[in-house]
């Protein structure tokens, strides 16, 4: 299954299905909860047409403070109401000192943070009665790290029992920004825990820095890394993210088709080998 991030900018095209036809859609509950009027009607139309996965923004699993129970209650209701098949979030924090930041801040790679986050993930999973799929986020600087990024992630997965969202572009971005080998990094991950893949474009803003913008087409080296990655994974849903500089639907459909073709090639081959 290859899906696309649902955005208001191309809601009409998604509903008509004329120029773009993903296998599923993904959206952030925070952008659609407690909404009425025109967009609620649109949301109902699109969820009638496509299976839905949700990717949250405001859980802030890495926050030092308590989880927001009221927010979790809304999330639970929303996920059930729209029959959401998978709920993912970010391995980062976006709220601190009781203030939302609306962006993904990097968590210090430390063992106490691992324990803190793992406890919170378990609390969320228990409350929602579903597994939480945590995205490995892109980051531009490590912060007071006492362990490697990959060890940090492995420990969180081990201690919390969460699943992973592998954003292949994020791994490419991080490998570039922090000068490590993306394939070696991926190989060290608990790949049997990967439940979902994201793919997106990025922007290089300095000779040594890439920002994860979701505003450009996916570049070939990221497609290559994606194809290599699939060889090490069981089939999982794959999502194309495009949040800015929205192109013509034909271009997005072209990216979807390319992703689908790679999935088909790699996972079909794997099935044949298993058989």
């Amino acid at each position: 299954m290859v899906g696309v991030g649902f955005r208001r900018e191309f809601a009409g095209e998604m509903i008509s299905g004329e120029h773009i036809r993903p296998d599923f859609i993904e959206f952030a509950p925070e952008n659609w909860m407690n909404i009425g009027g025109y967009w609620k009607k649109v949301l109902h139309q699109v969820v009638e047409k496509y299976p839905v996965l949700c990717h949250g923004l405001s859980l802030s699993i890495g926050s030092p403070e308590e989880l927001n129970r009221e927010f979790l209650q809304y999330i639970k209701t929303f996920l059930n109401e729209y029959k959401v098949q998978l709920y993912s979030e970010h391995l980062s924090y976006s709220k601190c000192d009781n203030a939302h930041m609306y962006d993904l801040l990097p968590i210090p790679f430390r063992m106490d943070a691992v324990k803190h986050i793992s406890t919170r993930i378990q609390q969320v999973q228990d409350y929602l009665q579903r597994p939480l799929v945590m995205e490995i986020v892109s980051y531009y600087t490590p912060v007071a790290a006492e362990m490697s990024e990959v060890d940090f992630i492995k420990e969180v997965v081990k201690q919390s029992g969460c699943q992973l969202l592998l954003d292949v572009n994020n791994i490419y971005v991080n490998a570039f920004n922090h000068q490590y080998d993306a394939k070696a990094f991926i190989q060290q991950l608990p790949l049997n825990k990967v439940a979902y893949i994201h793919m997106a474009g990025h922007e290089q803003v300095a000779p040594d820095l890439i920002i994860d913008t979701h505003g450009e087409p996916i570049i070939d080296p990221v497609y290559d890394l994606f194809e290599w990655t699939l060889q090490h994974l069981q089939p999982v849903p794959v999502l194309l993210e495009r949040d800015f500089n929205i192109p013509e639907m034909a271009e997005l459909q072209g990216e979807l088709s390319r992703l689908k073709s790679i999935c088909h090639k790699q996972w079909k081959l794997k099935d044949e080998l298993v058989a």
Partner: peptide, 20 residues
């Protein structure tokens, strides 16, 4: 909470920078 005061403080400092 499992966070050590030092880690908590680092996260606060980072987010305060983002705000100000």
């Amino acid at each position: 909470m499992n966070l050590l005061p030092d880690t908590y403080h680092i996260q606060q400092t980072f987010s305060a920078y983002c705000r100000t």
